[in-house]
Design a protein around this nucleic acid. Sequence first.
DNA 1: TCCTAAATGATAATCACTTGCATTTAATTG
DNA 2: CAATTAAATGCAAGTGATTATCATTTAGGA
Lengths: 135, 135
Amino acid sequence: MIREAGLKLTRPRASILAVLESSQKKHLSAEDVFQVLTQQGQQIGFGTVYRVLTQFESAGIVKRHNFEEGHAVFELHQENHHDHLVCLRCGQVKEFFDEKIENCQDQIAEKMGFAIIDHSHVIYGYCSDPECTEK
Amino acid sequence: MIREAGLKLTRPRASILAVLESSQKKHLSAEDVFQVLTQQGQQIGFGTVYRVLTQFESAGIVKRHNFEEGHAVFELHQENHHDHLVCLRCGQVKEFFDEKIENCQDQIAEKMGFAIIDHSHVIYGYCSDPECTEK
DNA sequence: TCCTAAATGATAATCACTTGCATTTAATTG
DNA sequence: CAATTAAATGCAAGTGATTATCATTTAGGA
């Protein structure tokens, strides 16, 4: 996968990809990735994590999101496009996809004379976990 | 307006609000606001601009957006909810509102057991300006 | 006008992220 | 399989946006 992207297969790149693939949390920050690797006893530089994640993004291996301002999170690129619901209490992220919304978007862009390149659609709220139900 | 929000009416607050009201660009960064005031010959601190904008946000006077990662922009709170289209070339921001999308969102949140608090829906692309048409 | 809590300005600090550079390494070549 | 070299890494310093600190100033009620 890394080679396919035209990148040299190095230890840091392989292990960063492994972290993303094996994590139960699908959305990880650079900090998260760094933590996991460090706790696995692997020695890796902060800069490398950021650099590699950015390369992975350009290569289409991961997708970058900015759910909460202040830091980006990365998820492995998935076959099917989807948008997200984020719980403001526990931070849980769920995915959704709605054909109707996608179509409306396209129509709006067309009507406004925009050529769509991408979009970010995030719903924020409280999830169904009793801990997170609005006070 | 500032008083209604329970805030003391001070020169910095009044002039920051004036900048937002009189700007032809509807979405301004803290830096933008600072620049305008400085160029008007007004002496104001960077920290104050950030603090006041954050207070205005809490008071519902402005809305904060993160169209481009790295810096927030603020717009005066408007009566009608709307989402945004952002041109990746010229940075122009247009508004859109689509009832159908809003409804779909509500249904999705319900189905997923989320109590919606807010959402961010931004479409990125190239606007119709000849300068911005995709290469 | 006086008083006091709140607000400001200047500056230092923080936080997430990026960059520069000397060293190491993947992987091509002989 | 060793030599070679361009690319990748680690570390540390640098950025840019934003926040915190704190002494000084100010709004607005008494």
